[in-house]
């Protein structure tokens, strides 16, 4: 099913391939004609609530049958080849845990289901990775949301999957736990695992990975690195922050450049909107020297994932 690399939504060495995938529930189209692939490393799957992220992940993991199109995980259809799950770990968005089990028992059970023979060792290792050893022998029913999330991650990791699919894995975790989990996911990615993370918390995805697939209204709205996606939005000017001792003079001079659409002042800070960031960057030092103003800062303001994503959603 490997296809030539023609789109930023594709990777060269895919472990998961999605082709013309659609899913509708009655009249509602949840996912519409998505084609993309995932390979080793972390891919962030972004989208507002209702964008179709969870539906896409559920089809990738074989929990839902596509209405149209196909999914291949490690070359097999997950709906008909359950043996591939030995190489796949899933952290679902829902609390799919047995609250009457301890974290250790749940991980051991998960290990058993995945054919691991030394379940005690595998469960201990997995719980250590997610920092849950202190609470390993407490009932999951007594856990906070963040602790349940970490237990789910441990249960998904317990059989050392090649592919880890995480649906909103950082929900309910505190900042320290998030940092640890992000480090863990990055560690997995460095080790060559395919990690697919769905999240609506953009800052977290930005910390994890540069490769994102953005979904809006069930469709793939953008794919690739954050800066490349931003660069592809030719119709939307870049917004730049300029720290300068004479903002009025520099602002007036900038407006004479054709690529600068507008300038604005916020206190002593000058903001400019340009369609050509590179040209502005080259021109600024010369301009500042010519005007005899002191330029101390030049900072693109909307290359962050949040800005990019805001633009994507606004385009609907």
């Amino acid at each position: 099913m490997t296809t030539p690399l023609t789109s930023p939504a594709e990777v060269t060495d895919p472990t998961v391939e999605v082709r013309d995938l659609s899913k509708w529930f009655g009249q509602k189209v949840a996912v519409s004609g998505i084609s993309c692939s995932f390979g080793p490393g972390i891919t962030g799957l972004l989208g507002p609530n209702g964008a179709g992220k969870t539906t896409l992940l559920r089809m990738i993991t074989g929990l839902l049958t596509p209405s149209e199109g196909s999914v291949a995980v490690l070359g097999s259809n997950p709906r008909t080849a359950p043996k591939i799950y030995r190489r796949v770990g899933l952290v679902p968005e829902e609390d799919a845990v047995y609250t009457y089990l301890t974290a250790r028992s749940f991980c051991e059970y998960s290990a058993s289901l995945n054919g691991v023979s030394d379940v005690a060792r595998a469960a201990t290792d997995a719980l250590e990775y997610v920092g849950m050893m202190d609470a390993a022998d407490r009932l999951i029913g007594e856990f906070s949301k963040g602790m349940r999330q970490r237990t789910k991650v441990a249960a998904a990791l317990v059989h050392e999957p090649d592919i880890l699919i995480l649906d909103e894995p950082l929900n309910g975790t505190d900042p320290l736990q998030r940092a640890k989990l992000i480090d863990l996911f990055r560690s997995l990615a460095r080790a060559g695992h395919t990690v697919i993370v769905s999240s609506h918390v953009l800052g977290e995805v930005e910390r994890m990975t540069d490769r994102v697939l953005a979904m809006v209204d069930g469709k793939l709205a953008a794919a690739g690195s954050i800066s490349a996606i931003r660069g592809a939005m030719a119709d939307i000017p870049y917004r730049v922050r300029l720290d300068v001792d004479s903002p009025n003079r520099l602002g007036a001079a900038l407006l004479e450049h054709g690529h600068v659409r507008s300038v604005s002042l916020e206190g002593d800070v000058l903001h400019a909107e340009t369609t050509d960031l590179a040209t502005l960057g080259r021109a600024l030092p010369r301009l500042a020297r010519g005007l005899d103003v002191r330029l101390t800062g030049f900072q693109p303001e909307d290359e962050s994932l949040e800005s990019v994503f805001r633009y994507l959603v606004r385009r609907r």
């Binding site: 289901l113 691991v116 023979s117 030394d118 560690s187 695992h193």
Partner: peptide, 18 residues
Amino acid sequence: GYKPYDGVRNGRRGAIQA
């Protein structure tokens, strides 16, 4: 970071028994 599990893996029967 993550260390892979390198122990024995049981088959489908092990999962059913679990």
